[in-house]
Design a protein around this nucleic acid. Structure first.
Lengths: 187, 187
DNA sequence: TGAAGCATGTAATTTGTTACATGATTGG
DNA sequence: CCAATCATGTAACAAATTACATGCTTCA
C-alpha cells in the first residue's frame, strides 16, 4: 500500500500544496489549478501531473479514489502522510538559490551584439511585466498572503530586467537609427 | 562522418562559444573553462561535456582529434559548420523569457511563514550578491563586453532579490525579536 | 453531423543529475 | 611511497518535454 520513500521535488510540493487548497482533484484538474496559481512562475506540463500524482500515491502521500461513473477518472487527495510532509517542508525554509539561467544572458555573454539583442529582450520583459501587473490588478490582496507576495517578487525582478535591458540599449545605441522609409523603395 | 541534424541547446552554444574562445580543448578542459566564465550563472556538470561534445562532433559541429601521447584524450575544436552555427545563433537574438523557478518563492506561495523564510533567503541572496560583486572586483572591465554585462545583470537581479526579502522581513516582523541570551542558559 | 477544440491519458525522447570507477599527480 | 586530491570517463537514474492517441462537447 505504501511504497518506498521517494524524494520530494518542487513538483511534489506543488501537487501537495494544491491538493491542500482544493481537497481533491484529478491530475487534469491539478493542471488547471496550477496554471491559474503558481503557473505564473512555475509551469507544469499536464503529463507531469499524471506521473507525479501516481508516484506520490504509491509512496503513500496521496489517496487515490476512482470515480464510479462515466470515465472513472482517478481523483487524488492528501493522506495524513502527505499533509505532514507539506508541514515539514514549510517548517524548513530553504536557502536554495538556483541559477538564473537566462538564455538572453547567454547570448549576451558570448558577444551577441547588444544593440540587436537588447530591443528583443526588452520587449519580451516588458510584455511579461505587463502580464504580471495585470494579474495583480485582479488580485485584491484579500486572499492568502503567499501568492500575493510571490507575485510581487516576480514583478520586482522582472522590472529590474526591464531596466537592465533599457540600460544596455541606451549604452549600445547612442543614436538609435530607425530605418526611414525611402520615397520610392522599389529598386 | 557528419550525422543527422541535431537540436542545438543552450548547452551546445556554451560548448561552441567556449571552443571559439579557446580554439581547442578536452571535455574536462571545457568544464574548467565553463566554471570560470559562464559558470557564475550557468553551471554544467562535467558529464554533460562528454556527451555534448560527442553529440556535436557526430553532427559535424566539432572536429575530434585524439592525443597521440599518454592518455590519448579527445581534443575538440570547431569546424566551419560549428562556427556558422554560432554565428547564426548570434544573429538571431532570442526573446525567450524563462520562468524564474525559485524554490523560495514556492514556499512563500504555499504559505510558509515569511518571518521564518525571509531571513534564510535574505542571507543566501546576500551571500550570492557578495560573491558576484567580488568577481566584478577582479574583472577590470578590460576584456570583452559580454561577460561583464552578464555579470552586471546578475548583480542587479540578485540585488533586487535581497531588497525583496528585506521588505518581506520588515513587514513580517514589526519588532524583530532577537533571542537574548539569558543569564544562565543551562536548564 | 462534423470539425474544432478542450479533456484525458500514455509513451517516447531528450536532458540533466548522481553515482561509480579508475588513472594520474603531488605534497608530505 | 602513500594518501589525498584532481582528472577523466562511463553508466545508471531521474526528470522534464514532446509527441501521440483518443474520447468527449459544442456550436455552426
Amino acid at each position: 500500500l505504501q511504497g518506498q520513500d521517494i524524494r520530494l521535488t518542487p513538483t511534489s510540493y506543488i501537487v501537495l500544496g494544491l491538493l491542500e487548497l482544493t481537497g481533491e482533484a484529478t491530475p487534469y484538474g491539478l493542471k488547471q489549478l496550477a496554471a491559474n496559481s503558481v503557473g505564473h512562475f512555475w509551469t507544469l506540463h499536464h503529463a507531469q501531473l499524471y506521473s507525479e500524482t501516481e508516484r506520490l500515491a504509491d509512496a503513500g502521500y496521496l489517496e487515490e479514489r476512482r470515480e464510479t461513473t462515466g470515465r472513472r477518472r482517478k481523483r487524488y487527495s492528501l493522506t495524513d502522510k502527505g499533509r505532514e510532509a507539506l508541514e515539514r517542508w514549510r517548517a524548513e525554509p530553504t536557502d536554495e538559490m538556483p541559477e538564473l539561467r537566462l538564455p538572453g544572458m547567454l547570448q549576451l555573454f558570448f558577444d551577441t551584439d547588444p544593440a540587436k539583442l537588447a530591443p528583443v529582450q526588452l520587449e519580451a520583459a516588458r510584455r511579461e511585466l505587463a502580464q504580471l501587473e495585470a494579474i495583480r490588478e485582479v488580485d485584491t490582496g484579500a486572499g492568502p498572503r503567499g501568492p500575493w507576495l510571490a507575485l510581487e517578487a516576480g514583478i520586482r525582478i522582472t522590472r529590474e530586467s526591464v531596466s537592465f535591458w533599457e540600460d544596455v540599449l541606451a549604452r549600445s545605441t547612442p543614436a538609435p537609427v530607425r530605418a526611414r522609409r525611402p520615397r520610392s523603395s522599389r529598386a
